Amino acid sequence: MREIVLDTETTGLSVRDGHRIIEIGCVELIDRRFTGRVFHEYINPKRDIEATAFLVHGISNEFLKNRPQFQHIVNKLLDFVQDSSLIMHNANFDVSFLNNELSLCGKRPIDRNKIVDTLTIARRRYPGSKVSLDALCRRMNINLSSREKHGALIDAKLLASVYAQMVSNIQSSILFSNEKRESIDLKSVYKKRSFQPTELEVSEHFKALEYIKKER
């Protein structure tokens, strides 16, 4: 099974305000394992980056001025993604920007049925806990030393590790819950009682049984 973990960095927070993608990072997974294949591009958005966005990712207008525009890398991106499922954290954000860029290039929007949002998975799995990418990495003991600021490729690699762990744990839980009782060797799970009950324990046990019968 082929999946693509994808992340973006942008000039600001909202497509409605005319903000654009400035970096895309993709990581290829086969059967939830990193293959080493990546897609990574910096993009000239032809507009200024907001100061608040710059503080998050550290990508400047000057750095991007000689980079290609989205229309010049879109075919390479689509060739890499192909028909694979897309794994994203807070997918609504990334998809809104991607679909805007695809629309401007005359391309079809992303099929929502192929999107897996790890934010949704994390909220269900860890209710009431912080579920940012940083928080999930710390929970899973994933090394964050390479992440001084947000970066699309760095974050895609970190998210790939988070996703693989979350899905693996969920599948293990489902597999165990679906096991037939007779297929589980209880002797290998529980040790036999290595001591005999005392007379007082036996007496209290039978008293409890008599009480239960009276209450029925």
Rank of each mutant, 00 (worst) to 15 (best):
H205I: 00
M88H: 06
A91F: 12
T8V: 13
N90C: 11
S173P: 01
R125W: 06
E3L: 14
G36H: 10
N178Q: 09
A160E: 10
Q171F: 15
N61Y: 07
Y163K: 09
I174G: 00
V81K: 09
N44A: 00
K180Y: 15
R123D: 02
E50N: 12
E215I: 13
D83W: 10
I4S: 03
S173H: 05
A53K: 04
H89D: 01
P197I: 03
K192W: 03
L55N: 14
R33L: 11
F63D: 04
N92H: 11
V56Y: 00
L78Q: 09
N92F: 14
R124A: 12
R33Y: 07
R32S: 06
M1T: 15
N141T: 04
A135Y: 06
A164F: 04
K187H: 11
H19W: 00
H89E: 05
D185N: 15
R181P: 12
L158T: 05
E9T: 03
D48V: 02
K192S: 02
G18I: 14
D185T: 11
I170W: 15
E210D: 08
V167L: 15
V74L: 04
K192I: 08
S96K: 09
Q196H: 05
R123T: 01
R108S: 14
R147I: 10
A164P: 02
M166R: 10
S96Q: 11
T120H: 13
V15S: 06
S96H: 08
R32V: 09
I184D: 08
F70T: 06
K207W: 08
N178Y: 04
F97A: 01
K213Y: 13
I170K: 15
E50A: 13
P127L: 07
V38G: 13
L153V: 00
K114E: 08
F97N: 01
K187G: 08
Q71I: 03
H57K: 07
E101Q: 08
N141P: 00
V202E: 12
L175D: 14
H19M: 09
A208W: 12
F93G: 10
I87F: 08
L144M: 03
K107W: 00
Y126L: 09
T8R: 04
N143M: 08
T198P: 10
I170G: 02
A164L: 04
I49Q: 07
S183T: 13
S14G: 00
A53Y: 03
